[in-house]
Structure formats: structure tokens, C-alpha cells
Amino acid sequence: MSRAEEELRSIVRKLLERKDVELVLGYEYYGRSVRPCFVSKPEEVERLVWNSDCWFNLATYLRSLRSRRVGIVAKGCDGRSIVELVKENQVDRGSIVVIAVECNGVFKPFKYGSTHVGRRLADYCRRCVTRVSPVADYLVKKGGQAPEDENTVAGDNASDWLSLFRKCLKCMACVKACPLCYCTECSIEGFKPDLVHRLRVPQELFTFHLTRALHMAGRCVECGACESACPVEIPLTRLYHELNEWFRENYGYAPGMSLSEAPPPLVFKEGGED
């Protein structure tokens, strides 16, 4: 157990003992991998872990726990998505306690049938801009050991997106793992069958992915949950990153960096001459 883990556990124990929160969202081991866990009793705190396998973005659960006071273990990108959720009035900042953990990047998760033996740093972590969450009530420094990366070459940037889309099963894991995809009637899940019907795979995968990209543009915090959840490993974060770049170039805006910064589409000003 690392020092960071010890510190994390003591913070969570304190929070639960003082009844500051009803529930803490954290990570636990199961087998070789790490999965989200919900800790509600001080004696369960020993389950909590924090290392470079904790890739899932726990902010995904915040909306379904809206009525409760919850603590959440948040990496830099998770913190950014909490900021976005607060800005979009999906969660109440006052009812969540953010336990920020300093993150050095996460590994790609082990996938069924993979022939890769070594652990690899996830591609999106190479583009990371915030190692610590922009909002934090508690801070655990020096979280997770620096990942030993066997593959120092950055991911291949040029790829045939259409053939990547074609692999898609449309299992919706990207949508459901995303903290910011919270619509109860998702336009690409099939609630609006004229745009994307549930069954038209692969015909409508182009619209499926591009619509999702457009909905994530300027909102995506590049936490990589979609990419790591994907069973066929479509590098979605790279696509969303490009659109975020567009926002950065045109408006100097990056999502989830501060609570006071309004998203550009919201404050769109009439401007310029034609």
C-alpha cells in the first residue's frame, strides 16, 4: 500500500465517521483489475485503492446519486468533468466532497484476447493538461506511481476513421461510461429513430459517431472513459480532442478548467463584420 492510498483511506474514514458524506465513490481491486466501488461504512475503507489502473471516471455516477451527499475520488480529468457537470446544473457542488488525487496517468485496461503483454500508458494521458482536479476539498498528493511505460511511442495519429467506425458494435459503452453523456433520451441511442436507429448497424455508425463527437465538442474533458470502455478500442478521445482544439484556437476555451468560465456557445456574442 502506497502512502497516497493510506492518506486517501484516512480522509475517507474521517469523512464517513463524521457523517459528512453518506457514500464515497472510489476504486477497489477485483482480480487483476480495478473497478469502481461504493463505500458507505468506515470499516469498508480498507477496500479503497488508488493506482494507475483506476481509469474509470467516477463522476459518471454523480448524477444518479444527486439526492445524496457523496464523496468522490477524482483524478485531474474527473475533476474537470465534475466542473462541467456543475456548470451544466447536473450536480450540486455543495453536496459533493471532492477528494482530489494527483494522477500521473493511467494504463490502458487489459482487454479480453489482447496479445499485448506490457502495460501501456493510455494515449489520452499523454495529452493530459491537469494532473490535479481544478476543484478539490481534499488533496492527496503523489498519487499512483509514475506508470512505467513500455511503449514510449505516442499512438498512431493518422488512421482510417471510417474503418474504425465500422468495427463499432454500437454497444453504447462510450455513451454510458461518459460522465457528460447524461441525457435521459439520448438522440443516438434510438429515441430519435430518424437520426440514428438502434438496429441500423453499421449503416448509421457514421452519424452515430459524428453526432456524439459534435455533442461532446467543447465539453469533453478527455478523461478517456469512452475509449477505455470500448470493447473494440476505437480511439474516440483523439477525435474529441481535435474538436476541443478548435474551441481552444477560436475561443481560448478548455472545458472543465474553472467553475466561473462559461462555455462559448452559452455566451456567443454577435460580432465581427462579414
Binding site: W161, L162, L210, A213, L214, A217, L239, E242, L243, E245, W246
Partner: peptide, 9 residues
């Protein structure tokens, strides 16, 4: 924005 997206893919 859409042109950027098209270029990317």
C-alpha cells in the same frame, strides 16, 4: 467546427 471534424476523420 464541422469542417474540422470532417477533416479529422
Amino acid at each position: 467546427l464541422l469542417r474540422r471534424l470532417l477533416r479529422t476523420i
